[in-house]
Design a protein around this nucleic acid. Structure first.
Lengths: 214, 214, 214, 214
DNA sequence: TATGAATGAGTATTCATTCAT
DNA sequence: AATGAATGAATACTCATTCAT
């Protein structure tokens, strides 16, 4: 019981960070899987391999933990967005890449889709509380703006397209089929498998491009 | 105690129906406002002005009530869809009208958006249980199909556009800005008021049409 | 399981009252035995032979239950006070009887002494909330007033003694030795048994009377 | 991390005492403000500006800390009692001074009143544990004894009055109006301000003296 | 059909206490 | 001597569900 290795003096600070991150990851999973009301602190503690009181010591209460998890969701998704490099492609292909990436992004991080929906179901009660909004804001709109400008310069795109509204359109086309996959599947009796989503991405890219052409 | 007046024969059947509908309406409101886990049978009973045991007598348990409310949401939304008449318009205007209607539809029936999201958050656990799917399926895809065919015939639209996929694209463009209004508002700092949504509808119609042109 | 006697239709209303009273009695015992913070809803439920949710259904929360128990303590003590009849005694004996009764009263209803102390320890937070103060107010001061007036008339008591302040003095002399019996016992090493308290009552009566003589 | 300066040899003994006293003061405040069950080790630690483990290192557990705080209450109150000098007054004035002092004493040290009540509510569980009772016992009874003897000698007081019982009577008259101020205030609708208490002291002195006269 | 009373099994949160350094 | 991190065992309170009538 007392055989902790003596060569580990850095324990305190590091373990705290590890515990906090562990809790945050577990909370993110739990809240996106069960929603705000359905999430259980018990499960988060078990998943994070810490005790419940530690969660309360670090985060205060369920609401604050949820808010922290929501923020973490954005932070993680923004980190993953960094990987996207569109500067070297020609404008049309950049748009195609952006659309494919966006859909793929939502598909491979379903907890993000879920926690977004959860938060909107709550009327955005918690996202308003987040202070450091800079870390939450997406850089993609800026990237898109550059692509559009390049396209206008080369004459392949028409001018006057608002990058934010255009990005929201792309996000809509990519988010909805994933977010609503279960109801779509039953109501329209379509498979919603990888191939189907792949096709969605192609359609969306096509639609986006045709909207941009002069 | 069991001396209900014998001279009230209509009581039984009619009141039963009224109670059931009252419960269903209350449940729809409650589930879309609070999600599945956050909904409270107590509140539904109070809102519907019936006792809790009556709810259990009619619907069995919370899950079954939720499923019934979900079904009711679709039924109601399909009823409202009937009002839409597109046959008399020329194809382009019909598309424009369809897009505007769809966005308006989601905007004025936010409980539908909410309960759809709730159900998808649950992985579609309940919608699978609904038996009478015919009543749930939308007729809009058929209407859209006819428009597309008319457009192809008059040469204004290109051929080969799948009506279902095209409808899902339109739904995406209309659903997402409403469904995600709260996070969009905070993250992108845009107003999401009526004017903004109006503009969304115009953009969406434009995008849809350009996708259809030859 | 379904063998409840058919001849008991009055059940509902009566059992409710019985449950409420049962809870109230248990709460009174629990709060006076353990103080406000030390009291346990669990124990109250077990003692009252009802479930915890029923307590919450009837009383709302721990604080409200405590307030109700405090009120009940006063109500019960006032009821017991009614038994006291002093009109037929001569003034001096009436004072003696009043003092003896007061001490005996506190001695045989120790939960009253305890809950009074508990409430004062709380700064009177709850007694302020009680609405129907009439039921809580003691009639003893009025009775005492009459005795004093009779005594003044017969010349055995001096005039000008305020009945309320005089009653508080009597209450002080009777309350303190009982309320503080445990610390007194240890600090002054005196027995604080029935005989000792009996003697206290005689001393108090003597002191009270000498204060009244002209 | 363990680089406390070696040139601080006084540190050990003196700081220990300071920490202990700091804890004790904080505990006294906390226990008298919230009772035994309502007191929080956390708050005591914060108030005393030490860590919780230090409290446990010094005192063992909550109960032992409470006992130490109770003892400290008596010690402090006895220290304050030393100030009282009655030898130079004539017996009647000495009694008056004693009564006034006693009431004033309770009024200006309300934590003493509170912790006494708390301990009695606990059935004296902890005061029994205190070993060094000598330090806890009041010297006032001895002082009072001398006054009574002087009064008997000068013929102003009657003989045969037991000083302990008489002191308890005085304590009763002074303790109760302060201890029970909140319930008295509400039940009898009297102010319980300084003037009222002042009057109480005069009444009590008057009552005490009349009890002593031959 | 309809309901007020009642409850078992949770659920967020707290608190005295200990561990590891 | 001293502490930040951590936890087992409650504790007030809730909620879907059922009982008795």
């Amino acid at each position: 019981m007392k055989n902790k290795p003596a060569f580990s003096p850095k324990n305190t600070a590091r373990d705290t960070t590890r515990s906090k991150n562990s809790i945050l990851s577990a909370a993110l999973i739990e809240f996106s899987a069960h929603g705000h009301a359905g999430a259980r602190i018990d499960r988060i503690a078990r998943q994070a391999k810490v005790s419940k009181p530690l969660i309360y010591a670090f985060f205060g209460n369920k609401d604050a933990l949820y808010t922290a998890a929501l923020r973490e969701a954005y932070v993680q998704i923004r980190v993953r967005e960094q990987a996207l490099n569109l500067d070297e492609m020609d404008p049309e292909n950049a748009i195609r890449a952006l659309v494919r990436f966006t859909l793929q992004h939502f598909k491979s991080n379903p907890w993000f889709v879920s926690i977004l929906n959860t938060e909107n179901l709550r009327g955005g009660k918690s996202i308003r509380e987040i202070e450091d909004l800079a870390e939450i804001r997406s850089d993609v709109v800026n990237k898109l703006d550059k692509i559009l400008q390049r396209g206008v310069q080369t004459g392949v795109f028409r001018a006057g397209v608002d990058p934010l509204n255009f990005y929201i359109a792309i996000a809509s086309l990519c988010f909805f089929p994933i977010s609503n996959r279960y109801t779509l599947r039953t109501v329209f009796d379509c498979p919603i498998d990888d191939a189907w989503l792949e096709q969605k991405a192609e359609d969306a890219a096509e639609m986006a491009l045709k909207f941009l052409y002069p």
